[in-house]
Design a protein around this nucleic acid. Structure first.
Lengths: 254, 254
DNA sequence: CACCGAGTTCCGGTCAGCGGAACTCCGAAG
DNA sequence: CTTCGGAGTTCCGCTGACCGGAACTCGGTG
């Protein structure tokens, strides 16, 4: 649990963050456990949050509220990113017919911001808003390779959690992969986050070279060879980057 | 400006709500104007909000933060709705090659929650998270027709703002249209929100018959005849509704 | 019956948050 | 150059919004 400053906002955030990507509804007691707030405080806070619709009361407990959804959809930079990316992701899906993702760097994890395809089977472990570790996914490695050096140092010095037999858990190995990715602009993953799943990813870089997001295509190893689609993924990512830069320079003249 | 309770949460919400769908970044002073908070209070609040990433500092001011985007994407009911709808919307886009929308009812307006296509020209005035009046859009009329009677009464008794020469502004006319929509499950719009734009929409109804969202296809009157696609739109909406109900009954057994 | 866990209400103490005022910074006008 | 005004920041003492312990209700269980 992250350290929570003793302010109302801190408590609010700890309540909101208590909801993981897979949590539908959480009960009063469960929220109490996750946040560590006293019953009285939590009770009042939940009431207040529900009133402004940051939370909604469900049949079995509380869930993240509709107002939050609206605000999130408006969060300007990310909204613009998703708007700009959508056509490219659709195009990528048309070419590959495999699951396409747009991922953002958040802390030491990837957050999935958009997803196309993959509705026939639960082929990928991702959900919208879900998180995955950086070192075990193609999209994560693409982000990490182009992130600030300080982040790389942090991730490389912490233990790398093993998720499958093929997860890269040795820092040296990961560091070498990241160097390659930085040169080629393409990251691969072979059953490193999940057995049977392969993936290619490419970073979307901003005008200053900072990494903004990453695009990936994932599919089952049985039929999907990520190398075949490396060029398409790379093209989509650079296309998105270019469009973003064009838009930004346009609007700055406003 | 809605009445804001004198609590921190109230102030937080008034800051967040100060951001409209089209606002990218707002400066300190502009936020002060919109929220009515004192400079000192606002300053501290903005700092705190930025710290928890509900706001981000941009070059020209503040914008809705990345954390908000993540939370919004996780807001469970709406997330499920968007996840379930996406394949249907994509399919609809494939059939029509016109702009496809998913809209939610929020207060007396439609909020656009998903959008596919329409990237070649700014054919439709919608943005993700944007709002439109209920009476002047097909998607709005579809929502309104199947909403609670009390909402209809409210909307019909308030003046109906004219947006184009063909906007329906007489309550009687609108009431008759709504009755038809309720029977057929299909709503039309011919240049009522914008000259040159036509649209078909159909409601997504929940297991209890309450309206959850609506799907629409919009295109320019020059090439687009909404009646041709009524069946497709209706099919998409009912498909979404069925999938939602199936999922809900499944997960309730968990 | 007693017991337990979930959720709600009460109430007095206190510190987080409030806002007026004074300040810096910067760009535009004269 | 100086003056001016708007934007943003800091200071500080007052106060009521918020805190949490404790006592409560409610429903299920042995």
């Amino acid at each position: 649990m992250t350290e929570v400053p003793n302010t109302l906002l801190g408590k609010v955030m700890s309540v909101l963050n208590a909801f993981g990507a897979d949590d539908d509804e959480l009960g009063f007691a469960e929220l109490g456990r996750r946040t560590g707030l006293s019953k009285a405080t939590l009770h009042r806070l939940l009431g207040d949050l529900a009133e402004v619709r940051l939370l909604d009361r469900g049949t079995r407990g509380y869930r993240l509220g509709g107002h939050l959804f609206q605000l999130g959809i408006r969060a300007s930079v990310e909204r613009r990113l998703v708007e700009v990316s959508t056509p490219y992701l659709e195009d990528l899906y048309e070419r590959t017919h495999e699951t396409v993702h747009l991922g953002l760097l958040e802390g030491h994890e990837v957050v999935y911001a958009a997803k196309i395809g993959g509705h026939r089977q639960a082929s990928s472990p991702s959900r919208l808003g879900g998180r995955m570790p950086l070192h075990a996914t193609a999209i994560g490695k693409a982000l990490l390779a182009h992130s600030q050096p300080s982040l790389r140092t942090e991730v490389l010095s912490a233990p790398l959690a093993r998720r499958t037999p093929r997860t890269v858990v040795t820092p040296g190995m990961l560091r070498r992969q990241l160097a390659t990715i930085r040169q080629t602009g393409v990251a691969y993953e072979f059953e490193e986050s999940r057995v049977g799943l392969a993936c290619v990813a490419s970073p979307v870089l901003g005008h200053d070279g900072a990494v903004v997001a990453a695009v990936s295509v994932a599919g089952p190893t049985t039929r999907f060879d990520p190398r075949v689609h490396a060029a398409s993924v790379h093209a989509a990512a650079t296309g998105i980057a270019l469009t973003l830069i064009r838009r930004a320079t346009l609007s700055s003249g406003t």
